[in-house]
Computed example of a mutant assay.
Amino acid sequence: MPPAPSNPVADLLAHQVAARHCPGALALVEQAGQVLAREAAGHVRPDGATAMHAGVRFRIASLTKPVVTVAALMLVDEGRLALDAPLGEYLPALRDLRLPGGAAPQRAPTVRDLMRHTSGLAYPFEIADAALRETWLGAGISAAMSGFTPASFQACVAGLPLVAEPGRAFRYGYATDVLGCIVEALDGVPLGQALQRRLFTPLGMAHTGFELQPGEAADLAEAHPEDAAWHATIPPIGRRTPGAPWIDSGGGGLISTLDDYAAFARLLADGGVAGGGRLLSEALMAEMFRNQLPTGVDGPAAYCGPGYGFGLGLAIRLDWGPAAMPSSAGEGAWSGISGPALFVQPRQRWFALMMGANMSSRMLCRLAFRREAGRL
């Protein structure tokens, strides 16, 4: 009997596990509701015998950002949020953001700037100027947003200088955390509750939230011990200390599962429609998947290779230029520093999602995953 045909996604996951890039991983590729590949490899944790399975929870880090962006766009659909309004209209604490030296920017950052990362609110590793970088590092904002409430986070940001003129540079950073504060302010509830009502309940995302629940730790994916950067950054995400300050981090705080996040990816692939109902308008779906960066503004090449601009919440493959991955114009992509990666092409109702715990070789893994998913 001839051997079963090779599945390139399964082969890739097996390689990643054998090479000790991650203890285990899950992947799902779909087109128009048809499963092209659904694969699992390895184990949940490096020190355990439990095989990777669909119930495993992952700290998805920056894959939180597209979710929060969609929730904010739903507020735009409702007429309660304007893309080109200054963010200070919704968060008064941020009405007077300044450049280094105290000068006022030529214009205030807008909601659109938050969604496309042109607001001037950057992660320290995005800041080239050493003195300015040290100023932002000194604010003590961690990946888990430990020690902050929404109010104290806004006060902290208000005291930091913008790293660029709004609209003039792509500088990835805390913008989506600020966007999450806007969603909270307009919906009048913590961000997790707003997402629950707007997205998690309609999409059946029963295992997604900002806080790890009792009994879930056994099925929480972990990286190899030698992945030191992962262990220095990721484990505090989702762990609330009773009595300590807490913020639902819109920039990277969600914990989710493969199938839960696939429900969100399917919403994007299906053009904003889920369960026969429309959650996001066609017009805003088009905005989300359109390159929003002005001419001459650099893009997210450090995160997905060349050939990409940025839409609203996702990198968007341009219709020109070389790319590090075999993608088509208009395809959206983003990933998390903790290991997961998403690719979605609404024109083909296609998406590919990989979940794993891997920081040290995450760029290589996500590029290879997109290549193999495209071979199915």
Rank of each mutant, 00 (worst) to 15 (best):
M285D: 05
L191N: 01
M52V: 10
R317V: 10
G238T: 03
E211V: 15
R240L: 11
L267R: 12
G251W: 00
G275N: 02
R107I: 12
E39V: 13
E287D: 10
A169Q: 08
S360D: 06
A217P: 09
G24F: 01
L12V: 09
T233F: 15
A333L: 14
L342Q: 09
F310M: 09
A262S: 07
L312M: 11
W230R: 08
D219C: 15
L186M: 08
A315T: 07
L28I: 04
A41R: 02
A4Q: 13
Y303T: 11
I237A: 10
D129V: 11
P346Q: 09
A244T: 10
H207A: 12
F210N: 06
S338G: 09
A286D: 07
G339D: 07
P8D: 02
A164G: 11
V68Q: 01
Q154N: 13
E165F: 01
A103R: 09
M52N: 07
L364S: 12
D219P: 12
M363G: 10
G33D: 06
G24K: 00
A32Y: 01
R349I: 09
Y172L: 04
V44R: 05
D96T: 15
A352L: 02
A333E: 09
W246Y: 05
A194H: 05
G332K: 04
I60Y: 00
A368M: 09
Q31S: 10
Q196M: 14
T233W: 15
A262K: 02
H224C: 10
A175I: 03
L220Y: 09
V9Q: 00
A71V: 11
A217E: 13
G332D: 05
G120K: 00
G167M: 03
R116A: 06
Q213V: 13
R38N: 12
L132A: 11
A158G: 15
A269D: 07
L353C: 07
A315Q: 08
E30H: 04
I141P: 01
G192W: 02
R278M: 15
S281M: 09
P161Q: 07
A85P: 01
R80H: 15
P46D: 04
Q34M: 07
G275E: 01
T295N: 13
Q154M: 14
V189C: 13
A228F: 14
A333K: 05
